[in-house]
Amino acid sequence: MSDFEFDQFLKFANQFHKNLQEETFIIDVMNRLGNLMIREVKMRTPVGQYDNSVFFARDGKLFVFEASSGRNRVGGELRRNWVLEGAQATGDGFIVTISNNTEYAPFVENGHRTVNGGWVEGQFFLKITMEEIIGQLPKIVGPAYEEYLRGFGFS
């Protein structure tokens, strides 16, 4: 038989429960941030207005050529393809991932050379969104943390 100290067990159980709640809180806040990122980056993502130009990417290069069709088209694939992959614990921190699997997304974000040697400036919609959200973190996370602490009876 071994000695059982209830006080130590209770302390362990309370700390375990607290840690579970803290991780749940952090994951929840990270997912809120992810949803905010998706909403903001979608608003900034340009929608292509295509005359007769056709764009496609292959082997890390963007190609543009004129199509024979006389119809004008409106894009939106890049904007529609943003996805929140969710938050997760990673080692000693947490990460939230948003992604866009549109092949030409990096070219629109960062800029690209044209076939005739010119340069199309990047739109930086993702970079601008991330900088804006980082600047707002205290206003976003602060109230959520205060609400979390109120759940424990702290005001």
Score class of each variant (00 low, 15 high):
1 M>A: 12
2 S>L: 13
4 F>K: 13
4 F>Y: 03
10 L>M: 02
11 K>W: 00
11 K>P: 01
12 F>D: 01
13 A>W: 12
14 N>P: 07
17 H>S: 13
17 H>M: 14
18 K>F: 07
18 K>D: 14
19 N>F: 00
20 L>Y: 01
20 L>W: 01
21 Q>T: 08
21 Q>N: 11
24 T>H: 10
25 F>D: 04
29 V>F: 03
32 R>G: 09
33 L>Y: 14
33 L>I: 08
34 G>F: 02
35 N>D: 15
39 R>C: 04
39 R>G: 04
40 E>T: 07
40 E>G: 01
42 K>D: 00
44 R>P: 10
45 T>N: 02
47 V>P: 04
48 G>H: 03
48 G>T: 11
51 D>N: 11
54 V>Y: 12
57 A>G: 04
58 R>P: 04
58 R>S: 10
59 D>Q: 12
61 K>Q: 11
62 L>G: 05
62 L>V: 10
63 F>A: 15
64 V>K: 14
64 V>N: 14
67 A>F: 12
67 A>K: 13
67 A>G: 15
69 S>G: 15
70 G>M: 07
70 G>C: 09
73 R>Q: 10
73 R>H: 09
74 V>N: 14
77 E>S: 12
77 E>F: 11
80 R>W: 01
80 R>C: 02
83 V>W: 09
85 E>I: 00
86 G>P: 01
87 A>D: 00
87 A>N: 03
87 A>S: 03
88 Q>C: 02
89 A>Y: 04
89 A>P: 07
90 T>S: 07
92 D>V: 14
94 F>A: 07
94 F>K: 06
94 F>G: 03
95 I>H: 09
98 I>M: 01
98 I>V: 03
101 N>V: 06
102 T>A: 04
105 A>R: 14
106 P>I: 08
107 F>A: 03
107 F>H: 08
108 V>Y: 14
109 E>G: 13
110 N>C: 05
112 H>A: 11
112 H>E: 00
114 T>N: 01
115 V>E: 06
116 N>V: 09
119 W>H: 06
120 V>S: 03
121 E>K: 08
125 F>M: 09
125 F>N: 08
126 L>Q: 03
126 L>I: 13
126 L>C: 11
127 K>N: 13
129 T>Y: 07
131 E>T: 06
132 E>R: 14
135 G>I: 05
136 Q>K: 10
136 Q>F: 12
138 P>T: 05
138 P>V: 07
139 K>N: 01
140 I>H: 02
140 I>G: 00
141 V>S: 07
142 G>C: 12
142 G>E: 12
143 P>C: 03
145 Y>N: 11
145 Y>D: 12
146 E>Q: 12
147 E>G: 09
147 E>Y: 11
148 Y>N: 02
149 L>Y: 04
154 F>N: 13
155 S>R: 10
155 S>D: 06
